[in-house]
Simulated assay, not measured.
Amino acid sequence: MWIRQRSPLVWVVLVATTVSGCGLNPVRMQPPTFGGPPTVRVVLEFSSALNLPAGAKVTYEGDNVGSVRSVALEGGVVAVAANLDSQARIPAASTAAIVQDTVLGDCYVSLGRPAGVDTGPSLTDGARIPVGRTRPPASIEDMMTSLSSFIGSGSIQRLGGMLHTVNAAMPPTTDQTRKVAATVARDLRSLASNSAEVDRSIDTLGELAASLKNQAGVLDDFLTADSVDFWTKIWAGIASVIGVLSALGDIFGRGAWLIPLLDSVSTALEQTGPPGGGSTIDTFTNQTLLPFLLDPRVEIAEVATPDGVNRTADTRQILAKLGALR
């Protein structure tokens, strides 16, 4: 049987391949692309990229859009180079985070749409997302430390006490609980149906707050020590005036009996009047009122009834019997 002798060149290639394969890292091997979509190379800066391997997937809003090419330390930050699908149209202002779906799951990079930005330029080849818009992964050690602190600080006991308090505050029967839940649901529906009024109230409060802010100088002056002393005294004075007015009102209410008397005095003054007609009050007082008070007497010239009958004699007899007639 004839056996073909292998060429020495073939043996050299096989030995070189075997030796070089001993130092080959499969993770660094990039799969070849055969007519796939074009990609853009971007760099994501993280403060930490713990457990993020080269070749990890990159997602945008849940869809796979690329993979990590390399992870390296550059200028105090971790530069994660990634190849992204250019047809994904990822905004240039996107955020990035290294996440892990499960405790034992693989880490990968998740890109997110920036808050308040719907459209904008897309990431281009060579673009970078700075460390200010990225979030490093949460380490298992930190998670276990937080969980240990939560358990050891008595939070579970406090949670149990809170649930016990809530149960004690609930109605004792299921029917009453349903009524309470129905009332709360009705109130929430009413609040939802009147959201415009709630918004208007909030806007009014906002306008009031803005007005108070604009009048901060006036409020500061109003709340000084001198202003406080002034308003304290003026309110005390107003309270005193109100007390006086209330007392006067009581006097006027109880002095209704003076009205006929004052009306009679007014009528008498109108009928008698100051002598001389047109004299001043001083003349009336000096010539009429004071002499009468010094020697009070009334001269009765005639007494007649409304129908014209003269009763002067009868009046004299009655006054004489009373001792009022001189």
Rank of each mutant, 00 (worst) to 15 (best):
S155K: 02
D106R: 14
S155H: 07
T124F: 08
S149F: 15
D106G: 10
Q157Y: 09
V117T: 14
G116W: 01
V131Y: 05
S148H: 02
P136R: 11
S122Y: 00
A138Y: 15
A138C: 14
R135Y: 03
E141W: 08
R128S: 15
L111M: 10
D142K: 04
P137Y: 06
I129N: 01
V131P: 08
V109F: 12
M144P: 12
S146N: 07
D118R: 14
I129S: 09
G120L: 07
R135A: 12
Q157H: 05
S139P: 11
G132S: 07
V117D: 10
R113V: 13
I151G: 00
S122I: 11
P114Y: 00
I151S: 06
Q157A: 14
T145E: 13
L159E: 08
D142S: 05
R158E: 00
S146Y: 09
P136L: 12
G112K: 14
A127K: 02
C107P: 13
R133Y: 10
G152A: 00
R133E: 10
I156W: 05
D125K: 04
R128Q: 14
T145I: 11
A138F: 15
G112Y: 06
V131D: 04
P121A: 04
I140P: 10
G126F: 04
P114H: 00
S110C: 05
L111A: 01
C107G: 10
G120K: 01
P121T: 01
T134H: 13
G120Y: 02
P121W: 06
S146D: 03
T119G: 09
S139N: 08
I140W: 13
D125Q: 08
M144F: 13
I151W: 09
R158L: 04
I129E: 06
L159R: 01
P130K: 01
P136A: 12
I156Q: 00
P137V: 09
G120S: 07
A115V: 14
P137C: 07
Q157F: 11
G132C: 08
R135T: 13
L111N: 07
T119R: 12
A115M: 05
V131R: 05
P130I: 03
Q157S: 10
L111E: 06
P121S: 03
S148F: 13
V109D: 12
S149C: 05
S153R: 00
G120C: 07
G112L: 07
D142N: 04
I129K: 03
G126A: 05
C107S: 10
G152K: 03
S139Y: 03
S110I: 06
M143Q: 15
F150M: 04
Y108H: 11
V109R: 12
M143D: 15
D106I: 09
R135G: 11
C107A: 12
P137M: 02
D142G: 04
R135H: 14
T119M: 10
S153C: 00
P130S: 02
R135W: 13
V117Q: 07
P136E: 14
P121D: 11
A127S: 09
R135M: 10
E141H: 06
